[in-house]
């Protein structure tokens, strides 16, 4: 077949195509200057992305009742592009929260020294929870050397599953908590520190090592798409390795959009004192107000 034949065929096909009915080509939308925007901002998240809704106000109201991603609209059966990219951004933030380490400078800034669990890599941390509950041998020596022994209250932080949570909350929570304890006379507070690749259960070893009465670990929660910044506090009275999980008191959802870090710090100060006074934590501790003295 020579080229002219090919050209003829192509022309015929094109002519046929242009005649065929039912083929609709969408009109090209007007071209706008790209606007400055951040699709992860609160305003963008609150926006109703459903095309031509029956009642846009009603959808906006629904969005106020839940932080589930409703009113996101669609492209055929799939997400529109804004929703797709927002989801990817939130997942990326969550992945970074799990896999990134805390900067040394941040810890220096709030006066914490750093030690490690027995996990040497993030991978090991994720697949070996048993090792994440134990301090490395070197870390044991460092802690014994640097920390006050037999404190009434021992506080430490661990990255857990979100270093982002520690980064976002610890610098404001810790001083608020320590000031709150300072206000209450007669309570000795141990030397705070940070544990890399640490899990909640590590607090049991810390408690035994330092002979603390109340131990509190501030730890990053497993990040969701809604926030990667959520931190929890786990508290136990006379924590011991192998004790029942039900002896821990947990306060979760500490972040910018949940309980603000400064407020959580002030609340925890009261709670730690109540646990110290009650000599019990977890199911054995009847939560009181923490609002007085």
């Amino acid at each position: 077949m020579d080229n002219s034949v090919i050209e003829q065929v192509v022309e015929a096909v094109l002519a046929e195509l242009s005649r065929s009915e039912g083929v609709t080509v969408p009109e090209a939308p007007e071209i706008h200057e790209p606007e400055e925007r951040d699709i992860t901002s609160e305003a963008e998240r609150a926006a109703v992305l459903v095309k031509n809704p029956v009642d846009a106000e009603a959808i906006a109201r629904m969005k106020k009742y839940t932080n589930a991603r409703v009113g996101v609209g669609r492209a055929g059966t799939r997400y529109n592009t804004q929703t797709l990219i927002t989801l990817r951004a939130d997942h990326a933030a969550a992945r970074d929260a799990v896999f990134m380490d805390i900067d040394r400078e941040l810890l220096d800034g709030i006066g914490l020294f750093a030690v490690e669990s027995r996990c040497t890599t993030k991978d090991e941390f994720l697949t070996r929870p048993d090792l994440g509950r134990q301090l490395s041998d070197e870390s044991v020596s460092v802690i014994l050397e640097k920390c006050v022994k037999k404190p009434d209250i021992q506080i430490f932080a661990a990255d857990g599953l979100s270093s982002t949570a520690i980064k976002a909350n610890l610098p404001d929570l810790l001083p608020s908590l320590l000031d709150g304890l300072k206000n209450r006379s007669g309570i000795s507070v141990g030397t705070p520190f940070f544990v890399k690749n640490g899990r909640v259960g590590l607090m049991d070893q810390v408690s035994e090592l330092l002979e603390a009465r109340v131990t509190c670990v501030l730890i990053g929660e497993r990040p969701g798409l809604a926030t990667a910044e959520s931190m929890s506090a786990y508290i136990a009275y006379e924590a011991r390795v192998g004790m029942e999980e039900s002896r821990r008191t947990v306060i979760s959802n500490i972040h910018r959009l949940g309980v603000p870090a400064v407020e959580a710090g002030a609340y925890l100060a009261g709670l730690l004192c109540s646990i110290l006074k009650a000599k019990a934590s977890g199911v054995g501790f009847r939560r009181d107000t923490g609002n007085e003295g």
């Binding site: 839940t66 932080n67 589930a68 991603r69 409703v70 996101v72 669609r74 059966t77 799939r78 997400y79 929703t83 989801l87 939130d90 997942h91 929660e221 497993r222 990040p223 969701g224 798409l225 809604a226």
Partner: peptide
């Protein structure tokens, strides 16, 4: 299926309604 794959309570992702 959950709204846009994000389960805001269980903090995990599943299939979206879409």
């Amino acid at each position: 299926s959950v709204p846009a794959s994000d389960d805001v309570m269980l903090n995990y992702q599943s299939n979206a309604y879409h």
